[in-house]
Design a protein around this nucleic acid. Structure first.
Length: 826
RNA sequence: GCCGGGGUGGCGAAACGGUAAACGCAGGGGACUUAAAAUCCCCCGGGCUUAGGCCCUUCUGGGUUCGAAUCCCAGCCCCGGCACCA
């Protein structure tokens, strides 16, 4: 045994050495001038983590490794890859946890961040630690506040009293996105409605643009679909139902009488609208309520507002409820009076908060009408059917109009247009597009966030804090518990909120709400390259050079929250003249989910993977490689504890194969092995950009097996390129082997990705499957490019093929070059 | 209910419409060892067969095709998201 053979693969020591070398050499970080001058910039972004007390979980590591593999691959191909990481540390998660353990978040968060940083370094990501962000640092949130002011000045932020989702347990307002089936996404408590003055960003005005741009960006399909659904565009009409008894004139109903506006996607069915329903919160409910019904109406409204969202979760089982107001409107098509009800199945949030009910052609209205014995009228017949009797089931399909006066006989699609036009002429309606997307409520009645930089002045109203006075520091407050009344903790800190008006100098009061965490993360990618700048949020020149982000990788759980807000903020900043692009992420890829032994991981099940322990035992390279080997990156995979032996053995064998080569000198590569090498280079080079990591690793394993087949020793030319192919997955090991092969510096400097040579990859002989009537009866080995006749000749001489031909006539021959020959016999 | 993604060996998974199961885990056998580890070699979907080989097998049922895991239709099941959105 020689000394070199005894030197074993020791990932712990090797990885520590290389991490130190990267650090000292600044291999992964850019200086300010490098950022300006990089010839071939590539911005590789991953979703920054929320630094929990538990430390990085495998899901984080999986995502970061997948993104890092991509970044390293780009770098090996000669790109100047900027790969930053940071911490999304504001918000209710941190705050609730701090409350639970009784430690102030200002102490807790830095501790968690330090631990995360340690772990992030340990997994060997190519992070630029000189350009990191922590959203809770004044140096960062100063610019979050600046961003708010830009939107405010641009008219995109407004304060309005609005019904909001209120979680009585977390004691805070929730965004619609944070309400899951009527319950708080965090604590599962039923969500109530409250009216509070809130700050909103007018994202709904961007709905169409946010929707349209989806056609032009290279994002995971599932993510785009989710955004489309969330935006929820629907075409229809706004129809006006005059209030009965208010004597509307035919020309200008609004002037002479009141109207109720409804949004419908089925204006064609207006002749079948036999009643109306307002949301319980609708402002006109009082107007309709007759004295005799007031008590009932009031009771219903109270009940609805208390349990609104909660009861709505059980749509299926729930019986429709509602109350007649005693009032009537006139159907603008039939001229008949229809009763006005209120019911919680109509949402104040959507459309106009009021509907025309067409029980004949809408399931919900049908159910309601049946329950309360309201009239049902047929206005659409299925194609080929005739009749004008009330349908026994609501009919939503296509058909022809009936009971609709002069529109009878028209198909639904035409009736939609003509009836809308007809009502429009009489100013009783117009075509309208409606969106599900609401304005973004950014106010939070909590402590752990950036104070919204506004001063409320009794004389001047809301006044923005002058930019030069930013940041508005979040004060250290010991008692930061949320308040049951929905008053922000900061509202209890008088010495903090008492201030003077920036405009008139009179005594005034600071806004005591803080902003939503999603605002912090809606722009962080702009900050990274300029994280060292304290004079601007982001530098114009640097931004033009590095953005938009070339590739963004993250979880699809953020498909509609973070990703939509980031797009909106980018568009808004463009409109306000701060950016020259409007889509922040050129490419977005959603990664899959890791499960363990076939089951979802959760703390309660006690089956979470503890990364530190695995890395300690096998090394970061093995852990990374295994995670990427589990399954297709975009689909996720099943982490089985024993499976890690595969990738570990692979890296170990790679070490054992390459180390002797480095020390024992050279000889020419074996031609067969070299062929396989170039085939492998091709596969890996093609698959890595597609994030097909698992099959890339498989190809490399297959190749290493070929190199080592029968215990043969490798030649340098056989393994040196493999060391580079492996580098994105196992960067430390590759660095070490690269150095031992005699190279100076880092493998990641200088575009070392191997060139694929098609000539060398070419096979000399092909294995051709011979089928008789579609069943394989023989395989033959023949020179590549063999002609059909020759292949046929060879096939015929095969005994087994002959037997199956059995003297029958060959009716047809299908020949696929170098692959397959199918003989069809009759 | 709607929108995504899936159903392939004991397991994780591969397969431009062209030899299903590459790669890996687990398992079995062998070589080398005093022994173990490491390493290397072989086997490893099911059923037949003396051999040569044959039949079956990608959730189910139909279809298109010379040929289907792959395309089309219908259905079942699992995972994720949304959900009275008018």
């Amino acid at each position: 045994m020689t000394e070199t053979q005894r030197e074993t693969y020791d990932p712990g020591a090797l990885e520590a050495r290389w991490q130190a070398e990267w650090e000292e050499g600044g291999i992964n970080s850019f200086t300010a001038s490098e950022l300006r001058s990089a010839p071939n910039p590539y911005y590789n972004l991953m979703m920054f983590p929320y630094p929990s007390a538990e430390g990085l979980h495998v899901g984080n590591i999986y995502a970061f490794t997948g993104a890092d593999v991509h970044g390293r691959f780009q770098r090996l191909q000669g790109r100047d890859v900027f790969e930053p990481i940071g911490f999304d540390a504001f918000g209710i998660h941190s705050e609730n946890f701090a409350l639970k353990v009784g430690t102030h978040p200002m102490e807790l968060i830095p501790r968690n961040v330090a631990n995360f940083t340690r772990q992030l370094r340990r997994i060997g990501g190519m992070f630029d630690w000189d350009h990191t962000v922590d959203t809770t640092q004044p140096e960062y949130y100063r610019w979050t506040q600046w961003l708010f002011l830009q939107l405010y000045k641009g008219g995109l932020a407004e304060r309005k009293e609005a019904p909001v989702n209120w979680c009585p347990s977390c004691m805070t307002v929730l965004a619609n996105e944070q309400v899951i089936q009527g319950a708080c996404e965090r604590c599962d408590t039923g969500v109530e409605q409250r009216r509070i003055a809130q700050w909103f960003f007018r994202i709904s005005g961007y709905a169409e643009r946010l929707l349209e741009n989806l056609d032009h960006i290279d994002w995971s399909d599932s993510t785009k679909k989710a955004q489309r659904n969330w935006i929820g565009r629907s075409e229809g009409a706004l129809l006006r139902f005059p209030v009965a008894g208010s004597t509307p004139g035919p020309d200008s109903p609004q002037e002479e009488g009141e109207v109720v506006e409804v949004f419908t996607t089925r204006p064609d069915t207006v002749f079948g609208a036999t009643y109306m329903v307002l949301a319980p919160e609708h402002p006109m409910v009082d107007r309709f309520t007759s004295p005799g019904r007031r008590g009932e109406v009031e009771a219903y409204r109270r009940r609805a507002s208390a349990m609104d969202m909660v009861t709505r979760q059980k749509v299926e089982e729930k019986e429709k409820t509602g109350v007649f107001t005693g009032g009537y409107c006139r159907n603008p098509a039939t001229g008949e009076d229809v009763p006005v009800w209120i019911a919680d199945y109509v949402l104040m949030d959507y459309g106009t908060g009021a509907i025309m009910a067409v029980p004949g052609h809408d399931e919900r209205d049908f159910e309601f009408a049946t329950a309360f014995e309201l009239p049902i009228v047929r206005v659409v017949n299925p194609h080929g059917e005739e009749g004008d009797d009330p349908p026994a089931e609501p009919f939503m399909g296509d058909g022809t109009m009936v009971n609709s006066d002069r529109f009878d006989g028209l198909p639904v699609s035409e009736a939609k247009e003509e009836i809308t036009a007809w009502l429009q002429e009489r100013k009783l309606g117009e075509a309208r597009v409606s969106y599900r997307l609401h304005d973004w409520c950014i106010s939070r009645q909590r402590y752990w966030g950036p104070p919204i930089p506004i001063v409320h002045c009794p004389a001047c109203g809301p006044v923005p804090v002058p930019e030069e006075e930013l940041p508005v520091l979040l004060p250290r407050v010991e008692d930061f518990k949320p308040d049951a009344q929905g008053v922000s903790p900061l509202a209890r800190v008088e010495e903090w909120y008492r201030t003077t008006c920036p405009e008139c100098g009179e005594e005034a009061r600071r806004e005591t709400d803080v902003s939503d965490t999603f605002l912090d993360s809606a722009w962080y990618f702009l900050r990274y390259p300029c994280a060292d700048r304290d004079d601007v949020a982001f530098d114009e020149e640097i931004t033009r050079k590095w953005l938009p982000v070339d590739c963004y990788i993250g979880g699809n759980e953020h498909a509609v929250l973070h990703l939509l807000y980031a797009r909106f903020i980018t568009m808004a900043l463009k409109d306000l003249g701060h950016l020259d692009f409007e889509e922040p992420f050129t490419v977005f890829r959603a990664h899959g989910l890791i499960i363990r032994e076939g089951a979802k991981m959760s703390k309660s099940k006690g089956n979470v993977i503890i990364p530190d322990r695995i890395i300690e035992e096998y090394g970061a390279d093995t852990f990374r490689t295994y995670l990427m080997f589990l399954g297709p990156f975009e689909e996720g995979g099943d982490y089985r504890d024993e499976g890690i032996h595969g990738p570990y053995g692979f890296l170990k064998r790679l070490w054992e194969t390459v180390v002797p080569v480095a020390e024992l000198g050279d000889r020419p590569p074996d031609p067969e092995v070299e062929r396989k090498l170039h085939q492998t280079i091709r596969k890996v080079s093609e698959q890595l950009p597609e994030l097909q990591y698992n099959t890339s690793i498989a190809a490399m394993m297959e190749y290493l097996n070929a190199v080592r087949a029968g215990g043969r020793a490798a030649a340098r030319g056989e393994v040196e390129p493999l060391v580079v192919l492996v580098a994105p997955f196992a960067p430390h090991l590759s660095e070490e082997l690269w150095r031992r092969l005699g190279h100076q510096g880092s493998i990641f400097q200088g575009g070392n990705w191997p060139e694929y040579d098609p000539a060398k990859a070419e096979e000399k002989s092909a294995t051709i499957a011979v089928q008789v009537n579609g069943k394989v009866r023989a395989t033959l080995t023949a020179p590549v490019g063999i002609a059909e006749e020759e292949a046929l000749e060879l096939a015929r001489s095969d005994e087994n093929v002959q037997r199956h031909l059995d003297g029958g006539e060959i009716r047809r021959v299908i020949y696929i070059q170098d692959r397959l020959l199918n003989l069809v016999v009759g």
